[in-house]
Design a protein around this nucleic acid. Sequence first.
RNA 1: CGGGGCGUGGCUCAGCCUGGCUAGAGCGCCUGGUUCGGGACCAGGAGGUCGGAGGUUCGAAUCCUCUCGCCCCGACCA
Length: 521
Amino acid sequence: MRTWRAGGGSSRTTRWTCGTWISRPGSRRHSFFMSTAQSKNITPRSQDFAAWYQDVVLQGDMAEPAEVVKGCMVIKPNGYAVWEGLQAELDRRFKATGHKNVYFPLFIPESFLRREAEHVEGFSPELAVVTIAGGKKLEEPYVVRPTSETIIGHFFARWIQSWRDLPVLVNQWANVVRWELRTRMFLRTTEFLWQEGHTAHGSEEEAREEAVRMLHIYADVAEEVMAMPVIRGVKSRAEKFAGAQRSYCIEAMMQNGLALQAGTSHELGQNFGKAFDVKYQSKEGTLEYVWQTSWGVSTRLIGGLIMTHSDDKGLVLPPRLAPVKAVIVPIFRKEEEREKVLEAANRMAADLNGAGLTAEVDAREGYNPGHKFFHWEQRGVPVTIELGPRDLAAGTAVVKRRDLGTKESRPKEGLAAAVRGILDEMQSSMLATGRERLKANTVTASSMGEVEEILSSATAEKGGGKFVMAHIKDDPACDAKVKEFRASVRCIPLKDENDGPGKCIVTGETVAQRSVIAKAY
RNA sequence: CGGGGCGUGGCUCAGCCUGGCUAGAGCGCCUGGUUCGGGACCAGGAGGUCGGAGGUUCGAAUCCUCUCGCCCCGACCA
């Protein structure tokens, strides 16, 4: 392929600009009067949350802007390892619920997108389209997949004949392209990595169960693996996936109070079944359209992870996702100390690794220990271990926990068990902290004025965003009112933890429960 | 597309207005030495067709024209 056209023929062709991430930490002037508490190359959250985020991603060596490819990023080893951790946790759960992995083409005939009216309307502004390939103009352009419902629908139609073929439960790990106007590393990039599950069922109930089951798997990974609390909910009609009958989502709250949609799961109903003629013959002999679902999470989760846990010193990774659990920093003055300390450090690393805790020794020369502490701190390593002559003499090591910054001397004997204990504690404490933050920044409101008041004064970029629980009718016209002040209806929680029915803040009609209204990424 | 701004070593920038000797600084990088319990210091060193093309001039990073790219705000973000 030679040329790309952005925008699927829409007027967007050359209109996009790529986000804010090019700006560098050095471009801002940092104040650093404080000695140990302050990082000199990371903008404090309180000063500029977006800049802080960029700094953490960069200094944590997670990713960098692709530079020569606008809107795209290079995921670096430290970042990709986190993605691999998420993939492993998710994939295991998908397999355990009967799904098999598959792979469909990157290119989709343009006409496929058009078969489902709402779907094409939703996606066409952000399509990248291949019009020339092999030096020749294509008869029918290919779109680079923004998602695969259409091409998978086409093949489902070939695979499914009888009720005996159902359900079909597949998942694919892939990259997708959505030509966004504004991008931020991990949170919204032109190309991103994700998984998309696609299933076909013989009944609406079964499809609904599937969609909800997968939503709970996402929530489980978010909370138990990522230590990122989420609200499970249903999207409003205005916010649902283009072509779905109903969309479920998990919404997380970032440290600045903004909402992040961290995963979605859709009941597609028979929309794609009808568009692609996916029919099966029932036990009774009648021809029926299948009921489908699709569900996905992406590398955006990593952005959520960062904005949930990291601090002004840099990245903080939950132990379960940290590629390296512990780094040992050797300390010595004299040459003979050097040898002894390094030997002890290597032995200690071997012990930890033997106990299943990935550990490394930072034996680099030319950097003093302080430099190394900062280095690993910025990269989010959960535990750093200082090992020097004083420790060797005492048979101990100084163990520091990344999230709280607490340091304590531990006996060398049984260190692996102690570190494991610290990691476990850290994992659950991080989740607890997130839950407290979510709770503390969730408020109720009973009028649109109140909602607007809260969200406008919140100045989310400075860390005061809120989730506002309010009664609002599930009607695009009501959503539009909320959008007037750059907020949105995030979801209608699956479990109503508030006061049940109440009057809609727009129409005054009675609605069953409160929804989450917030500013979002 | 509208409005604003920027292109100078790897990074962040100064120099340009008012043309002139070998284009600088900080950070980073390399070498050697002294250091090492929270971002070390000293000495030496590598690294730049000043985004590109054309023009003015004895002479252009600097002035003029064109061009390319990028950033910010707006519009967009199922």
